[in-house]
Design a protein around this nucleic acid. Sequence first.
DNA 1: GGTAATTGTTACAGATTTATAACAATACCC
DNA 2: GGGTATTGTTATAAATCTGTAACAATTACC
Lengths: 230, 230
Amino acid sequence: MTTTILVIEDDAAIRDMLCFSLRHSGFSCESVSDGEQGLKWLGEQQPDMILLDWMLPGIDGIEFIRRLRANEYLADIPVIMLTAKGESEDKVQGLSVGADDYVNKPFSPPELIARMKAVLRRCRPPETEENQQLEFVGLSLDTKSHRVSVDGQRLDLGPTEFRLLHFFMKNPERAYSRGQLLDHVWGDTVYIEERTVDVHIRRLRKALEPSGHENLVQTVRSVGYRFAAD
Amino acid sequence: MTTTILVIEDDAAIRDMLCFSLRHSGFSCESVSDGEQGLKWLGEQQPDMILLDWMLPGIDGIEFIRRLRANEYLADIPVIMLTAKGESEDKVQGLSVGADDYVNKPFSPPELIARMKAVLRRCRPPETEENQQLEFVGLSLDTKSHRVSVDGQRLDLGPTEFRLLHFFMKNPERAYSRGQLLDHVWGDTVYIEERTVDVHIRRLRKALEPSGHENLVQTVRSVGYRFAAD
DNA sequence: GGTAATTGTTACAGATTTATAACAATACCC
DNA sequence: GGGTATTGTTATAAATCTGTAACAATTACC
């Protein structure tokens, strides 16, 4: 299930580099050089997201969004605007017209990717993400109330430990490296030492102690950690 | 396994400072002063990452990235671009997206290191995450959970024994010399006594004892070892 | 059987990896 | 604003793994 991005950008070099970066990050990428072509492309296919340059020949970014939002089939596609200069008037204007986020050039690729993921998360149908009740060996985690309990007894977890446990309970029986845990639990924007994961594992283990279960969070030496019942 | 960084930077002072910081953080560091030399160096060796100054005599940073990305062997090497403050001319700056991240000068070494680690984390396992469930005469090895079991009973292996068994299970019924095993299981960069293989074979055999199967790891005299069911 | 070559086994020091606690910085809540 | 909770980092201790050497056992070959 690849996520397709449509890039609309008039500078060929920037376009190519963007596509390279996106593909490098696992997205599928299509690009056109102006608004006309963009609309034409959209008449045939629907991307999951649009990266839109602010300054375009012909139809400019603002106008493009206006037309997009006017079309009932395309109105829901999230758009991130790329702005050359950080003029706040422009930003406000861009957002007010309906871009879901904007990114100033120059931007760091990780930042762009992170914001794209954030927007995608926000825009995607809430689907299963709503109120999940995860269960595992008597341990139950409720995403809605943000609570964890064992046999009705509450466990006290900090926010990060909760997210960590949540991730583990969604993906038990599988070893994850510290890097993967950072990516999945902390997100993509952060620069955090891998050792920090150890500390939070420790905190999670401590919080899980009253559950009675031993060894739920297991060390996989030279690899990382795994959540499993024995 | 040290991580090698290629630094391309024309200012000798910054170059030395960078190398000092990197080595201090456990990286191995090579540096050149312009793009030509950089490409030449890349023709001979492959670093794990490139730190690239944006303003360079001759081939500039952008052009360098373009050439790098055009080369199939080098395209996947992550690049962090170093940019000076005054150079934020929009169009040109947008091009920095060809890099995996970029850092403004002046930067703090810890920040640079942190971003490097983040980029390396993300680029390292490029989807080659092979998760397979290998089976052999009741023995099963699961790379996803990083576990080995016999008839549901878990076996306890150390990291090297795990890799060794993994290799054997992928290539059973075939004899390998100690040298070949070193290459495949340890990696071909290390120099280790061949007899060390014997010791690990011994450890693997011991760990496999509770499996009930006799003679899974077989000695092929004057050749090496073979993994087979008798 | 004797001998040399090869492999098995064990112990151990050094290296690597993980656990834990303490600390400083930050965010959060009245 | 003051106090509490949370977070990330670091230092140090503890656990575990590794490679090597030394010696024992086995095999091959004459």
